[in-house]
Write a protein that binds this DNA or RNA. Structure first.
Length: 681
RNA sequence: GCCCUCGUAGCUCAGUUGGAUAGAGCGCAGCUUUCCUAAAGCUGAGGCCACAGGUUCGAUCCCUGUCGGGGGUACCA
């Protein structure tokens, strides 16, 4: 059991006794005569016991119990009296040195060194590093990554992939039955684009020799023509929009100048600001269209193609519709192209060291969609509106549309079909959707419909996350406004890591010197780790700025810092000729005389607590914070406590235990984040 | 218009169901290397936790309002 849970349990027992004791004494205060509390329910006891938490300041011990203050009103006693009664009934002699009451009624708990040492010894012997398996294992489906195939993966796919993978690894480690499913977009318009592209611009030889490149070329070409045509047709109205917006700004400004009353003026200033914002947006849109056109006009080859395919956008939609209707030619092309598209994304997953139990894309559910709509209609949930089939929900303004006017289905329909499939085939207790925050309304509706069709017992959770921003604080885009390719970012991260690994200043210190293979290996582990770690180190719901320079930097809270701590630990083990696993059998509890030894031990013992936090909030940044704290605690220890050069063997053995456990915690923790380690760097 | 979300050090970000003097990194000013990797460690300066009310013994956290950023808002996903 985790130390925190043991303390909570002890507090709950003591609290139960204390409350009974206090009520036997009778209440002294007449004001509380209304509350004849003779005991607390089990649930209450647990919630008060849960108010045990690690202290913020080491002066207050290691953990503190904060339940006396909120109980004061309920029990009609001063909080310090309650704390005193609680401490009188508290039996933690095995765990704690002394128990002190401080301030208004904080109960400060300081763990015994002996207990810490014994716990470290037990943790060393445990493959699970003292982390208990879930008492009630659940079947958890995690839906993450879900890129559109036939389109290059971009920076936006990092978050879902990395967060989902970290959650899958962590929940699995905690003993849950985790099923990961990559809900690919493999049935959408992008295939219409590739099919159209192949029919008109395809190169059979190229497709055979390098299919992925050829498909990607076709996608980009068709996409470019569509964007160019759209830009051309929209640019006039965009100019008008800018003019209109500018006029509105002038009008609003004039109104502000003319305003007499301050109150009126303030309101008009607000509309002026709002008009200016609209103007800026209109100008930005126009700029984008203009640059799209400007980037193409000089490319005569492209211009010729574009002029030959004026109706390409509709034609693409037509190809998509034909595919969905089962047109033999398009279906054959889809079946032919899909494996190549899968190879393409699989290559990225391989780089990222991410895998899935299932990859059931949209196409998998295609056959089931009609039935979903029919069932919703039969259940009286769906109805026709403006030609579309809609589910109207009282708690939402807009309906959830499950079938378009033209008969096509939407992702809401697919998501419902997926939900039924997962319930029936996987027996899910819990389904996590690791998807962008912007889709929260979609999931609110989806879950609301699910509750009405028999999903009351399945916990459906939108594990939402924020946007990746560029250096300007706006969504990360290239200068031309397109999204940034994922692979080029990975390449750049690895290249930067390589530059540091090869830094002659430091590589001369390593003996034996690194060969090229080892350097490449290290650069890969450090570079990919950097991008993952940077993503996971932010709370998933925050937006964050993508700053490669900082991510790959070796200073601060980065993966390289943790990996470096691990490498130094490995160096000590190697130099000492000790195997990591062998240290488990030392058996003796380490001595924790130096404050930095005690601090390191204390941190190591909190590994399980950090995982509980990850689990509770589906937020891997708690584990990241923990690992950074551990690496720092180790760095201080490393500074103050020689291991192999300690003054006696006993101390060496004792410290080796801490060193080995640090290595295992860092390695395991990083592994749960999907990040690897190297023996030296 | 309506809904959601965010606002914490110069910058980038943490902050565990409300807890004691709000933390870290970068940057800045210093210090430390006969010692297992200095890709390190230590010290210091730096804060009206956007603002105003409210609830509470106690509010960065909960409620209401204001201001400011981002996102969504009937047939794309």
């Amino acid at each position: 059991m985790l130390i925190l849970d043991r303390l909570r349990q002890s507090i709950a027992v003591a609290l139960d006794k204390a409350v009974k004791h206090l009520s036997d004494q009778g209440t002294v205060d007449s004001a509380s005569s209304t509350s004849d509390v003779s005991g607390l329910s089990q649930q209450d006891l647990e919630s008060y016991a849960a108010m045990v938490r690690p202290t913020a300041d080491p002066r207050f011990g290691d953990y503190q119990a904060n339940c006396a203050m909120p109980l004061a009103k309920i029990l009609g006693r001063p909080p310090r009296d309650i704390a005193t009664a609680l401490v009188d009934h508290l039996d933690v002699t095995d765990l704690c040195d002394d128990v002190q009451i401080a301030g208004p009624g904080f109960i400060n708990l300081r763990l015994k060194s002996q207990f810490l040492g014994d716990s470290i010894a037990a943790m060393l012997k445990d493959d699970r590093l003292g982390v208990p398996l879930a008492a009630l294992p659940r079947t958890v489906i995690i839906d993450y990554s879900s890129p559109n195939v036939a389109k290059p993966m971009h920076v936006g796919h990092i978050r879902s992939t990395v967060i989902g993978d970290a959650l899958a690894r962590t929940l699995r480690f905690l003993g849950h039955h985790v099923i990961t499913d990559n809900h690919l977009g493999d049935w959408g318009t992008q295939f219409g684009m590739v099919i159209y592209g192949f029919k008109h611009f395809g190169d059979e030889t190229a497709l055979q020799s390098s299919p992925v490149e050829e498909l990607s070329r076709l996608y980009r070409l068709v996409n470019r023509i569509i964007e160019y045509n759209a830009a051309k047709s929209e640019i006039e109205s965009a100019r008008i929009a800018v003019n209109d917006a500018t006029r509105m700004v002038d009008v609003a400004l004039q109104a502000v100048t003319d305003a007499k009353e301050p109150k009126e003026k303030k309101s008009l200033e607000k509309s002026h600001a709002s008009a200016s914002k609209k103007q800026a947006a209109a100008i930005e849109k126009l700029d984008k269209l203009e640059s799209t056109i400007a980037n193409s006009v000089e490319d005569t080859g492209f211009m010729q193609l574009a002029s030959q395919h004026p109706g390409i956008a509709d034609a693409v939609l037509n190809e998509t519709a034909k595919l969905h209707e089962g047109d033999a030619e398009n279906l054959a092309l889809w079946k032919r192209f899909l494996p190549y598209c899968r190879d393409e994304i699989d290559r990225v997953y391989q780089r990222l060291n991410v895998s899935f139990d299932h990859t059931l894309g949209e196409s998998f559910y295609h056959e089931m969609l009609g039935k979903v709509v029919d069932d919703l209609r039969a259940a009286g949930l769906a109805s026709d509106s403006e030609g579309a089939v809609c589910v109207f929900l009282p708690e939402f303004d807009a309906p959830m549309i499950v079938r378009k006017r033209d008969g096509a289905f939407l992702y809401a329909t697919t998501d419902l079909a997926t939900l039924f499939y997962r319930r029936d085939q996987f027996g899910a207790d819990e389904i996590l959707y690791v998807v962008d925050s912007r889709q929260s309304e979609h999931f609110d509706k989806l879950f609301a419909v699910a509750r009405r069709v028999g999903f009351e017992d399945i916990e459906l959770i939108h594990v939402n996350f924020g946007t990746v921003l560029g250096p300007d604080g706006r969504p990360f885009k290239t200068r031309s406004g397109s999204s940034v390719g994922l692979e080029s970012l990975l390449d750049e991260a690895v290249a930067r890591a390589m530059a540091v690994v090869c830094d002659p200043e430091r590589s001369v210190r390593l003996d034996p010197p690194m060969d090229e293979d080892e350097k490449r290996q290290i650069a890969s582990v450090v570079g990919h780790g950097a991008i993952k770690y940077a993503d996971l180190s932010h709370h998933r719901t925050s937006d964050y700025k993508f700053d490669l320079q900082k991510m790959v930097s070796m200073d601060g809270n980065t993966s390289a810092y943790i990996q470096y701590a691990y490498a130094r630990v490995s160096g000590i083990m190697q130099k000492g000729g000790v195997e990591l696993e062998a240290i488990a059998s030392f058996g003796n509890a380490p001595r924790l005389d130096d404050p930095s030894e005690r601090a390191l031990a204390m941190t190591l013992l909190k590994f399980g607590e950090s995982l509980m936090q990850v689990r509770a909030e589906y937020a891997p940044n708690f584990l990241v914070d923990y690992l950074y704290e551990t690496a720092r605690a180790y760095a201080v220890f490393n500074e103050n406590c020689p291991v192999l050069k300690a003054h006696d063997d006993q101390t060496t053995q004792s410290r080796l235990a801490l060193v080995a456990l640090t290595a295992r915690v860092l390695r395991q923790g990083l592994d749960l984040l999907g990040i690897q380690v190297v023996a030296r760097m």
